[in-house]
Design a protein around this nucleic acid. Structure first.
Lengths: 336, 336
DNA sequence: GGAAGAAATGTCAGCGCTGTCATCTCGGAG
DNA sequence: CTCCGAGATGACAGCGCTGACATTTCTTCC
């Protein structure tokens, strides 16, 4: 197997230069086992002199473990995921792990393909979003014998560990809050819920609770596509055109809700006097509005952090599938 | 070297089951070389039966190439970077590559450590932000003999390929725009510019151009920390408390500017009548405001896409350091 | 001074895959 | 019939590192 001897400085080169065996150099690099200070110095000098960069592929292959962690998120555009990613990224870097990232665009088949190719890197752990996966995805994750965290949702049985909150319950809580405030003619503006199962679960909770309270949710407008400020703005316009009698509108997401607030502002509508607006997800932006958005918030960054802490830093005994409910809170705000 | 024979199905197992040699199975997996349809089927059946998952570590080690791409960004919280990441992620997944991500928090030493550990994975290419790196970072990237894209900035000489726009020029263009609109008592609200060199460059361009026009930028308020809507809101308050005579305020970033808009709204200030507001970066949110934000926009998602297209998909001849200026545009908006 | 154990280092065989260079098969041209 | 070349497939040696298990130094203490 000939290949042009590239600049590739190997551990062997370093060891030779330092006058030690390869394994000793390896131990110095990894801070493993007892090494005489003098020996360590020799090796480190050789490393500096050669500009050696360790080959993680070879190392991980030999030791059958890597410091890579697979992270699969549904979307780049939905603002909640950068936040989750921030939590994950920070916690990982603290512990010397590195994320390999994939995005599914809410498609289970894409997710399956991603899981397959991420598993190829023998990651130390895997973080994915939600609890719904294809049968094959579950199979692969179960046989991989690595820790798996499923984040955001806890309304089902996880493969290993679920971290998040109940979206169904979140929907119900929103409903109770609005009912308590006296709203009865409730409207809903949502994005594409076929894909976003968690937003759909929140809606279901909302619908159920409102139905039980005798104020069924009949005024709805669904826009296609991903959630965005723009769609929230136009969506509220469309909803009100059809159902001008709404006294409050719930949005599938905070960015949608912010759009709603902007629509109301542009129309000079009195919020919450004439119309209440209620979001979901507690994005920063909503809280910086002139009137802070009434919404439902979960600490997403924390979800990412906990996921990492539990599956990569925790060496504790495996205890079977576990669920961590980080809960959520109603942010009263000033718009509903 | 004994290790419990885990569930690890290897290519050898697949090959044995299919009754072919390992290398043939390998070729089937990689779609390489001529394979009889019948043989391919046998192998694929064996793969399905065993649930084989390829080991990318071994494969990449043997072939000295991986489909990993290192991506280093300064921040998770600054909204600009999720957008860039979206562009990168989409373009990469289209071409079967996977990003390994690191975040520097605007610290060159952290960046150096990240480059070192990302290079360990023998990535096919590396994408980093900005043109300022430590000497050692540059050395490593130069010797790695892989393609390197430095994104966002083009105001300096790149290692291999730079994609972005001139922030200095962007600052000057903002100044010219505001001067043309008749503004003279110009204020500035910014975040931590020691870390964010590009925001600092925009400010420098702004200051230079205003100085040349005889309307020096003396009214400034810098908040510490990263840019955010909240800081923009409080920052504008602080600036106006000290310099109530501003007729327009430039923000270091769009999220800061949106905060400024909210402050003005909450105070019932007439925008742009009493006070103009000008952002930078053209985030979606700014355009969804009741009055679209006047700002300066570059297509960040496109920057990510171009970076990927040029360094991982393009096999063309190396042509030495190159610069791609994606430019920017002044978005007139309705706030300045 | 020597035994005993701790400290430091080394030997060796792979990890699971792929590049290189054969080898083998088979149909058609001469 | 033989020869040739394209089409298929295989043997083999590593990629660069690390785990397991020696082996070789010190120390220490009686």
């Amino acid at each position: 197997m000939k290949r042009p001897a590239t600049h590739g400085v190997t551990l062997a080169d370093v060891a030779r230069m330092a006058g030690v065996s390869e394994i000793t150099a390896s131990r110095v690099m990894r801070d493993r086992g007892p090494i005489r200070a003098e020996t360590r110095d020799k090796v480190l000098r050789a490393v500096a002199a050669t500009g050696y960069v360790r080959n993680g592929l070879a190392g991980s292959l030999a030791s059958a473990r890597s410091n890579l962690v697979g992270v699969i998120l549904p979307s780049h555009t939905n603002n909640v995921f950068p936040e989750v990613m921030a939590g994950i990224g920070q916690a990982l870097s603290r512990s010397g792990y590195q994320p390999v990232v994939g995005v599914t665009d809410y498609d289970p088949a894409t997710e399956e393909a991603l899981v397959r190719s991420l598993l190829a890197w023998k990651p130390a752990a895997m973080i994915l979003t939600g609890l719904e996966h294809t049968r094959e995805t579950r199979r692969m994750l179960e046989t991989a014998s690595i820790r798996v965290a499923e984040i955001m949702d806890i309304d089902n049985r996880p493969i290993d560990l679920a971290i998040g909150f109940s979206h169904l319950e979140a929907g119900r809580a929103s409903a109770r809050h609005l009912l308590a405030r006296g709203y009865r003619r409730i409207g809903y503006v949502g994005h594409d819920l076929d894909a976003d199962l968690r937003a759909a679960a929140r809606l279901k909770g909302l619908v159920d609770q409102l139905g039980e309270a005798g104020a069924p949710l009949e005024r709805r407008h669904l826009t296609g596509g991903a959630s965005s400020v723009q769609r929230g703005r136009s969506g509220l316009g469309a909803l009100l055109a059809q159902h001008p009698d709404c006294d409050v509108v719930v949005f599938s997401n905070d960015d949608m809700a912010v759009g709603g607030v902007f629509h109301a502002m542009a129309e000079g509508m009195d919020v919450p006097g004439r119309l209440g607006l209620f979001g979901c997800n507690g994005l920063d932006i909503g809280q910086a509005l002139p009137k802070p958005l009434s919404t439902l918030r979960a600490n997403r960054q924390r979800i990412g952090e906990i996921a990492v802490e539990r599956i990569v830093m925790d060496d504790g005994p495996e205890t079977g599938p576990a669920i961590i409910d980080v809960g959520f809170e109603i942010v009263a705000g000033a718009t509903a």
